[in-house]
Design a protein around this nucleic acid. Structure first.
Lengths: 221, 221
DNA sequence: ACAGGGGTGTTACCTCGGGTAACATCGGCA
DNA sequence: TGCCGATGTTACCCGAGGTAACACCCCTGT
C-alpha cells in the first residue's frame, strides 16, 4: 500500500535520523555529540556512521537540508524584477528572515570548524559559499562594471555575503532593532550612504589611537 | 646583566612558551594539539595548562599577541587625517597587508570554534570584534548619520568587518588579483558603486532560479 | 522449505585530545 | 634549616569520533 513514489526504502530512515539530529541541534546547538543524536533517535552510533559516513557527513546533510530553503529563497529574491535598490532590500530581508526562523540551525551554516588540517581556511561555510556565488552571478548579470566585471563581481559576492553574515549574526544575538531597520541600515551601507553622508564637524574627536600600550610592534616585523 | 625592567620572572617563560606555540601554529595551522605545542617547547602539557588555564587561554594569548599589531595598525589608519575615501582605502589596505603578512596565524583570528555550548554564536572572533568596535567608533565620530547614528554605526562596524573578513579570506586563498585592486574593489563597493553603476541591458538573462529541483520547501515551513 | 542478502540494530573496543592529580626538583631567602 | 614558589615529570581520567564483529528480521529467488 505504501506509495511507490518514495525513492529508496532506506531514505525514510535517513530522514528520520536527520529529524532526530535536527531536534538535538535545535536543543543543544551545533557541537552536539554523535552519542546524543543517536540517543535522540533511539539508536546507537554505528547506525549514524553507516548512513552518513562521519560527523561531517551528518552535519553536511543536515545543513543542506535547511540550506535548500534559504538558498532557494535568496535565489528567487535575486531574480525578482525589481528596481535595484528594492531588490537589494528584498534579498537582505529574505536572508534575515531565513536565519531568524531557525537560529540554532543557522549556527550550523556558519561553522566550518570540524578542523580541516588542509590549512585552506574558509571563512565562509560551503552553504554560504553558494549564496556568495548566487550574488556574484546576479551582480555580473545585472550591473555594468566594465572590463573587470568578473573579478569585481566575485569579490563583491564574497564581501556582501560576509557582511550580511556578520551583521545578521550580531543582530540575531542582540536584537538591537527590528528586521526592517536592519535591512535599511545594510541597504544604506551597500547603497553608498557612507560616501554620501555629510562630514561630521570633528568636534571633540580625541585621538583614540594614542592612549594605548606602545610596546607591541606594528603589523610587519 | 638581565635588565631589571622586565616585570615578573615568570613572564619570560610565558613568552617562550608562546613562541613555541607560535612556531607550531605556523607549521601546522590552528588546531595544533597541546601535546605538539608542549613538545615544541621541550616540555609537557601540565606546564602549558599552568600558564594558560586551558587551550582557549593559550590560543587567546597567542591571538592577542598578533592582534595587537593589526589592531594598532587599523586604529592608526582610522585616525589618519585623510579624505574619507582615501581613509577607507587606507584602512582596507592596512588590514589586507596585515593578514597577508602572516596567513597561518591570521587563521587563528577567524576561528571562534573551540565549541562554546553557550549557544551564543559569534561569527566574529573576539579579535575581530575589537576591529568592529574601532570601525564603529570611527564611523560614529566622523560621519553624520542623523538620529540613528549609534545603531547604524554599530551595524556598519560589524558589517564592514565581516565583509572584509570574508573577502580577505577569499583573496588570501585564491590570490585573484593584487592587493591594490582588491582594495579598489572593496572601496568601490563601500562607496556606492553598486548604486551608481549603470543597469545592464538584461540581454540574455535566463531566469536561473527556474532550473532547480522544486522539492525543497521555502524558508518558512 | 531453505539459503541468501540488505537493512537495522547491538556491544565492545580503539584512538586521540583536552584536562588534572600527585609527586619530584631546584633556587632563593628569612 | 626550613619554607615557598616556580619548573618539571609520570600517569591517569574523561569524553567524543570512529570501527569491528556479531545478531536479527524480512523479503525474495530457487
Amino acid at each position: 500500500m505504501s506509495g511507490p513514489a518514495t525513492p529508496a526504502v532506506g531514505e525514510l530512515r535517513r530522514e528520520q535520523l536527520l529529524n532526530a539530529a535536527d531536534r538535538v541541534v535545535q536543543r543543544e546547538g551545533p557541537g552536539a555529540s554523535m552519542n546524543a543524536i543517536a540517543a535522540e533517535a533511539g539508536i546507537t552510533k554505528p547506525i549514524l556512521y553507516r548512513h552518513f559516513g562521519d560527523r561531517n557527513g551528518l552535519i553536511r546533510a543536515l545543513t543542506e537540508r535547511h540550506t535548500a530553503g534559504l538558498l532557494t529563497a535568496v535565489r528567487a529574491a535575486l531574480a525578482e524584477p525589481l528596481e535595484r535598490r528594492d531588490l537589494v532590500e528584498r534579498v537582505l530581508d529574505t536572508y534575515l528572515a531565513g536565519i531568524e526562523a531557525r537560529p540554532q540551525v543557522y549556527r550550523l551554516l556558519t561553522h566550518p570548524e570540524a578542523g580541516d588540517p588542509t590549512g585552506a581556511g574558509n571563512a565562509l561555510a560551503p552553504a554560504l559559499r553558494q549564496i556568495a556565488e548566487e550574488i556574484t552571478k546576479a551582480v555580473q548579470a545585472q550591473v555594468d562594471l566594465g572590463a573587470d566585471s568578473p573579478l569585481i563581481s566575485e569579490t563583491w559576492g564574497r564581501a556582501i555575503t560576509g557582511m550580511v553574515l556578520a551583521a545578521g549574526d550580531w543582530w540575531l544575538d542582540q536584537r538591537p532593532c527590528s528586521r526592517a531597520r536592519m535591512v535599511q541600515a545594510l541597504a544604506d551601507l551597500l547603497w553608498g550612504r557612507l560616501a554620501a553622508a555629510a562630514e561630521l564637524p570633528l568636534a571633540i574627536t580625541p585621538p583614540s589611537a594614542a592612549e594605548h600600550e606602545p610596546d607591541s610592534p606594528l603589523v610587519q616585523d
